[in-house]
Design a protein around this nucleic acid. Structure first.
Lengths: 107, 107
DNA sequence: GCGATACTTAAGCGAATGCTTCACCAACCA
DNA sequence: TGGTTGGTGAAGCATTCGCTTAAGTATCGC
């Protein structure tokens, strides 16, 4: 998941797909690389569950899968808030200590 | 940023640091690798702005930087909601078309 | 001062990544 | 039917990554 988002080219592809579905060659057009390379990136994104695609005729149409994005977002936000709550508690503790400053302060 | 979070070991380190600051060796303890490897991971996390550290005496204490986590979270959520809004508009469009089904349907 | 602790730095190595080229197949269409 | 378009698959190659070993340096406790 994060592995898939780690590459700037793949993030560009995700960005593009958020503006609407696209075929493989549409996806490749703005990128300075072979169609083959784009397909390889695409398979990484699909492997990570970030993109779903289906082939009709000879053109493969890709769209993003927000469930996966949501999962990544959730992972981050959970950890961030965990830390921020801890930080708030520390703030409260320090404020409490400030009211009785006679004791030793062991942060 | 995503590059830094791409590695499972580094995610474990972030996870650990969200539960509170830690020294390099505390961070290394649960990991089956050299202290040297841990320091290298740490420098990647620091380079990405995910972790800040300061050395006092001979021990370096590390803590996470939520600003960076927030930035990553923001990147994802912006793209996700962009797509979801698009999806909602499509739903509205389809519903609208369903009310006047005599015209050709070109999704 | 002396040994132990807590890193730090550099070199090296195997494996994974990101790309290219080339050959190929399956639609589409003039 | 034959050429063009859109995509697939495998092989190869340079670079980067994750890790190790090894040889430091600086600080702490005795």
């Amino acid at each position: 998941m994060f592995q898939a988002l780690a590459d700037p080219t793949r993030r560009l592809m995700v960005q593009r797909l958020c503006e609407g579905p696209a075929s493989v060659s549409e996806l490749a057009a703005p990128l300075a690389m072979t169609l083959s390379a784009v397909v390889q990136h695409l398979s990484v994104l699909e492997g990570a569950g970030l993109v779903r695609s289906q082939k009709v005729g000879r053109v493969r149409t890709c769209r993003i899968e927000t469930q996966a994005l949501r999962a990544a977002e959730h992972w981050i936000s959970e950890r961030r808030t965990l830390w921020e709550r801890r930080f708030d508690r520390l703030g409260a503790y320090l404020a409490e200590q400030a009211e009785k400053p006679e004791e030793g302060n062991g942060i």
